[in-house]
Amino acid sequence: MSGDDAKITPRNLAAQLSYRGRGNPPVTHPSSAISNCFPGLEFDFRAIWRRFLVGIVLSENNNYVVGYEDEKYKDLVGHRLLKINDRPMSVLTQGPVMPGRGPATLSTGDSPEAVSFMEWSNTIALLVGRQGTKVRCEFTKEAAKLEVLPGNPDVATQTLELEVRQLFERDEADGASERLALLAESLAKPGELSQGLCSPWQNDYRECACYYWAASRPDYVNVVPGGDGLSRGDNWMQRENTGSYIVDNRDFQSSLSYDDLFKSWESVLRFVVGGIQEPPPK
């Protein structure tokens, strides 16, 4: 048997976490995975965040209060949740550092102050041990449509104690309370777990263009080495394979649009064989 036929089976958790199946690229390791702010495929697990704190409803991917369950929190709608137990929910976003320049802040239309909401899943990971207990929640005092940086002295705040919801149903049988592998009914209203599921992965083709889909297909294709030491090739989102890379500026003239992907991803996305995306550039 050659080394290539070797059969190994990871046995403990550490080995299973680090294990890479034959043929899989390094990015398939959980440690190199991109944490995803987009929904899952089976159900929109962002819904867990919406009703994570008893009494209020948050946007599924943000610290923006969009609703309330308890009348006494009615006035919080439109406000932002800045901190839980002193831990900020958002940070200042700084971009790639270019040689010779300091880090630049990355602002967007929704966030001119370059404030980004952190992954809610990380927040849940930190608070999962607090289910059923109260935590200190700092909100903006006023409604805040735009993102707000926690700790900004110019922004008035208010602190309330809210309860972290029990995420799982409990079984009270046999005289002992035991957590079941079943999401708590109070965590989502009927339909909420799936209402965010319209075409999630057609979006992802575009949204996750940073070699994310390279787990199953590369996004830099038809690559040939150039005499100058650089490579030439096509962006997989180009409408036409030309052998000349078009930077994706999302004007959708020369590259595939969201609409293209929703309507006919089967025909606009092409197979890659041996690094060449069909049809090969002329």
Partner: peptide, 21 residues
């Protein structure tokens, strides 16, 4: 046959030929 890898304390089953190597 099994292999314990010090780096990351990982534990594997190996097939007989690989173990023999």
């Amino acid at each position: 046959g099994h292999l314990f890898l010090a780096d990351g304390s990982q534990l594997f089953d190996l097939d007989a030929d690989t173990f023999a190597k």
